[in-house]
Design a protein around this nucleic acid. Structure first.
Lengths: 146, 146
DNA sequence: CGTCAGTTGACAACATGCTGTCGTTGTGTC
DNA sequence: GACACAACGACAGCATGTTGTCAACTGACG
């Protein structure tokens, strides 16, 4: 018996559930340093090199407007810094301030601890396989969209 | 080398991405019949038997207020029907109207088609394994929360 | 029968995402 | 160099989720 529809629905519900659990875990990690998950992600995107808002959005896979609002908020709160962008007069390059950097770095040990406990509890090899399969299904989804 | 933190972050990003893709796919399926993904999920929760708003929320794993607002909207739109709840004077039992039922049933063929294409493209056995692993990681997450 | 804790829906405030529209700024082409 | 088009940020409106507070209802316990 095929039963692909049931399997597909089960997959969707599993993804929604795990997504919620990972978001909740992220909140727990980010809250102590005064960040939300979204703020953390935006700050994390500019750790290696400055980006403008649209660039952060591309990296995060969400719209630039969503990033824009968070970035403006982070600048107001002194966690993100805007420096002139030689390539675009109205689109400043964003980078963390010392405060922003400190916040992200404060999370790292807890994140590492959580990840280690999760991966070890699940089994390192099996977890790696799961991550690979998720990446693969994501690619398939790009082609199979209804 | 362990590198669990990197693997954990990769997992989180994969989950977020696939979650977004599945939501987008759901939108595509639900839009033609005038539903959103959230409406579809609420209607789907009361297909088998009537529930009050708090019961739907428990089943969906979100807060009852979120369900409440959607349910009120669905009642206004004539897709959901409130019948007196013998067990609670102010908490009516909700069930789909004929219109609501029709909308959900109209989605089913497209959903089945999409699921079949997704599962077949990924490999039935491998997909089943992925769904099982997601359920397992979800259980692990319940214990490992930071 | 009265009290009290838990459940439920209503309402409000907020965070995060989306879309659409606008004016400004870069860029490639003729 | 001029012009059409793409990219970018600002702004507005909407959907969905959260939390917190409140009043009404239920049920159990004394």
């Amino acid at each position: 018996m095929p039963d692909e529809p049931r399997l597909g629905a089960e997959f969707a519900l599993s993804i929604f559930k795990v997504n919620g659990q990972m978001l909740a875990a992220g909140e727990q990690l980010a809250r102590p340093v005064g960040l939300t998950v979204a703020w953390w992600q935006v700050l994390g995107a500019v750790l290696r090199r400055p980006l403008n808002a649209a660039g952060i959005a591309r990296e995060m896979g969400i719209t630039r407007q969503a990033v824009q609002r968070i970035a403006n908020r982070l600048i107001d709160d002194g966690l993100l810094e805007a420096s002139p962008n030689p390539a675009h007069k109205r689109s400043p390059l964003l980078s963390p301030t010392p405060d922003g950097l400190a916040a992200v770095q404060q999370i790292a040990p807890q994140q590492a601890d959580f990840a280690t406990r999760l991966v070890d509890a699940f089994g390192h090899k099996r977890f790696q396989q799961l991550v690979d399969d998720l990446a693969a299904v994501s690619e398939v989804l790009d082609d199979v969209q209804p």
